[in-house]
Amino acid sequence: MPRALEHQHHTGFFVRGPSPTARLFFFAVLSLVLIATDARLNYLVEVRQGFIALLHPLQIIANAPLNIAEDIGEYLHTQTTVVEENIQLRTQALEHAAELQRFKALAVENERLRSLLGAAQLSSQPARLAEILHMSRDPFSHKVVVNLGSRQNITPGQAVIDEAGVVGQVTRVFPFSSEVTLITDKNLSIPVQVERNGLRAIAFGQGRSATVELPSLPANVDIRVGDTLITSGIDGIYPAGLAVAEVIQVDTDADSPFAHIIGKPLAGIEHHRQLLLVSIPQVDRPADSNTLKTPAPANNKKATPPKRHVNN
């Protein structure tokens, strides 16, 4: 017969130390204090960062089996698949090069037009390639953890994209890793624009169903199923013109003055492990450019980013 959990005999007949109730009371109060501190006051950010850094070696050990399996898989790639992939990538690169040339011409033209209008110049945004370490431990929160952190000058608020579109935003930065909240998370919203007609809206994550929602739009709004939503760029965080989601459902209810619009994110984080973290652009915010000042303070503003890194 299999062994059940037999009682452990130890030297003392009674478990020594304080009674379970006293222990429970002590630890329950301790956790409630922690919960309150974390929820109401943001004192625990550094503590969390420190402990996550301590756990980092364990994380590396835990990730090792998968990495090794991937390495072996790569090593055992046959030559034909490599050649095939190579051809495919070559054609892709050619196509992209052609597009890029057109894009460059457009960018120059756009900049000239902007300068004619006197509008703010959009500087190009440097981006860094990061790798997904793991999904969030909690399957019901829409977050991933990537392998770049404050040591690599990542700051909270940076936009995260992949080759298909916007993935989300960096919300928490630890020394060697950072947490990315996906656009489908309930707490994240992103300013979007309908590609077809330039209509602006804000997309809110829906959480459970891994979709985004455009609330508070009138029932007669010109959005159809199949429309692509792109970033509008007016928030100053996400670069303008990146694909966000495709509209999959538009319900107009006679009872409600608002349309019920659901979009499905285009970026697919399930399929690959690389993401791009885009730096926050240094554009003149409307509040700054409205003040009638000489360009001198603008230069000061450009000098601030290093300071911001120091803060984190």
């Binding site: 301790l30 919960i35 974390d38 929160s141």
Partner: peptide, 20 residues
């Protein structure tokens, strides 16, 4: 709590109660 990135202390409280 640390590795799940949630509210600090929620798993701690739940685990303490359960083990009680």
């Amino acid at each position: 709590d640390l590795i799940s990135g949630g509210l600090f202390g929620q798993f701690a409280l739940a685990y303490a109660l359960t083990s009680f």
